[in-house]
C-alpha cells in the first residue's frame, strides 16, 4: 500500500489572513496528500502538539504579520526539543530575502514567497520529505 504524505498547514501567531494557507492546503490535497488544517492563531506549542498527534511528515507554516523570525524559529526549536526534528518544515508568506538564510539555518527547509507556483511547493515537498 502506498504511503500517504501527511501535511500540517498552520497559521501561527496573530494574523487573520488565511486565504493563502487554504489555497496551498487545497493544492496539496489535489496532489494526493492528507492535509490537516488548524485554523488561525496557533501558538508554537499548539502547532507542535498537533504535529505529534497527527504524525505528519511535513509542516507548512503561513505568516503574513512579519513575526516569522520569532514564530518560525520557535516552532523549529520546539520540534527538535520534542524529537520531531526529522519533520520537513516549510514556510510561506511575506518574508524578506535577507531573512531567508537565517530561517533555513534554524531548520525551515523551504521558504516560499508570493508568486510561488503550487507545482514548485508540491515538488519540493515530494523531493524533501523523509522516506
Amino acid at each position: 500500500m502506498e504511503r500517504k504524505i501527511r501535511v500540517l498547514v498552520a497559521k501561527p501567531g496573530l494574523d487573520g489572513h488565511d486565504r493563502g494557507a487554504k489555497v496551498v492546503a487545497r493544492a496539496l490535497r489535489d496532489a494526493g496528500m492528507e492535509v490537516i488544517y488548524t485554523g488561525l492563531h496557533q501558538t508554537a506549542e499548539m502547532v507542535v502538539q498537533t504535529a505529534i498527534q497527527e504524525d505528519v511528515d511535513v509542516i507548512g507554516l503561513s505568516l503574513l504579520s512579519g513575526a516569522h523570525m520569532t514564530l518560525f524559529t520557535d516552532i523549529a526549536e520546539l520540534l527538535k526539543e520534542r524529537g520531531m526534528g526529522d519533520v520537513l518544515v516549510v514556510g510561506g508568506g511575506i518574508i524578506p530575502e535577507e531573512d531567508v538564510p537565517r530561517l533555513k539555518e534554524s531548520g525551515i527547509k523551504g521558504i516560499f514567497g508570493p508568486g510561488t507556483s503550487m507545482d514548485e511547493i508540491i515538488t519540493f515537498i515530494k523531493e524533501n520529505v523523509k522516506g
Binding site: K4, R29, A31, G32, I36, Y37, T38, M46
Partner: peptide
C-alpha cells in the same frame, strides 16, 4: 486525487 483536507481540528484547537 486520493488526497484529503482534514479540517475538524479547527474547532478543537
Amino acid at each position: 486525487s486520493g488526497g484529503a483536507l482534514l479540517g475538524d481540528r479547527i474547532r478543537m484547537m
